[in-house]
């Protein structure tokens, strides 16, 4: 059996109005891997995610989830395995209480009431929102809504968790909390994580490998540091590497000794500076 959780072969997606959103996309994501799909606005990230989750069907090409080709017959089974959290939590939360929203997925799976309740409580505990069961989604803050949106998918026990723009529209503290939450989740649970974002600062914190999607095509893929080193490619895709990474690049240009591993985060940068100081 294939070790790939998700595999796309020559996937093309054309919207009814003729817009080519995805063009010849090939990608392989192995089980348990944490990947990020980055790209500018309108690159086709959300379309790609919806294709993987079986919400829309590719116009051409093949999508395999755990070695099974996605088709009309197994669509519900695939949706059970692949959980998708939408960019705007208001699209995802449509029930009148948090409990109902989180219970929606497991209830649709036909689980018993006790199972649904325990899964809902468990999912809310994972996102740190215990006791929110009877709250109304429209009364929550944006950060809380995002967490509930993730809980609505966690309660289905997915094997692949897809999150579309997890950090969009959040204040710095909520953003930090959400990154931590995603990291904790992927550490505690054995799922494959796919995150679409243009928050390059967050990418290095939540993923091991990235894909750059531009104008519906995958233009680069590889380990985070490697991809961020391809500055021209990033520029073409209207992206920039993380600020710290840029700073060390500029320092290297000015003649400072470039570290072997360019730092991506503040912590890595601190370590590097510490190392330089010790050298002196």
């Amino acid at each position: 059996m294939s070790q790939n959780a998700v595999e796309l072969k020559n996937v093309r997606y054309v919207y009814p109005d003729g817009l080519i959103a995805l063009d010849d996309v090939n990608l392989e994501i192995t089980k348990g891997e944490k990947v990020a799909i980055i790209g500018p606005n309108g690159a086709g990230k959300s379309t790609l995610l919806m294709n993987i989750a079986g919400i829309i069907k590719p116009s051409q090409g093949e999508i395999n989830i755990f070695g099974t080709a996605l088709n009309d017959k197994n669509i519900y089974e695939i949706r059970r395995k692949v959980g998708l959290t939408f960019q705007n939590p208001d699209d995802q939360l449509f029930c009148s209480t948090v409990f109902e929203d989180v219970a929606f997925g497991p209830t649709n799976q036909g689980l018993t009431e006790d199972e649904v309740t325990s899964r809902t409580k468990e999912a809310l505990r994972h996102v740190g929102l215990e006791g929110y069961e009877n709250r109304q989604p429209h009364h929550l803050s944006e950060g809380e809504k995002k967490k509930v949106a993730i809980a609505t998918v966690l309660s289905m026990h997915p094997r692949v968790l897809i999150i579309d723009e997890p950090t969009a529209n959040l204040d710095p503290k909520s953003r930090e909390e959400l990154i931590e939450l995603i990291n904790n989740l992927s550490r505690e649970q054995e799922f494959t994580l796919i995150v679409a974002t243009h928050d390059v600062e967050a990418v290095s914190q939540i993923s091991d490998r990235i894909f750059i999607l531009n104008k519906g095509r995958v233009v680069a893929e590889g380990p985070v540091r490697e991809v961020f080193s391809q500055l021209n490619l990033l520029r073409e895709a209207r992206l920039q590497p993380p600020t710290i990474f840029q700073l060390f690049n500029r320092l290297a240009e000015k003649g400072f000794a470039a570290p072997k591993n360019m730092p991506l985060t503040i912590d890595e940068a601190l370590d590097e500076i510490q190392r330089l100081r010790l050298k002196k």
Partner: peptide
């Protein structure tokens, strides 16, 4: 779409 992603197939079930 969000409903479909969570296994909605037309019939709603509630407890």
């Amino acid at each position: 779409s969000a409903m479909l992603a969570r296994g909605f197939n037309g019939a709603t079930r509630t407890h």
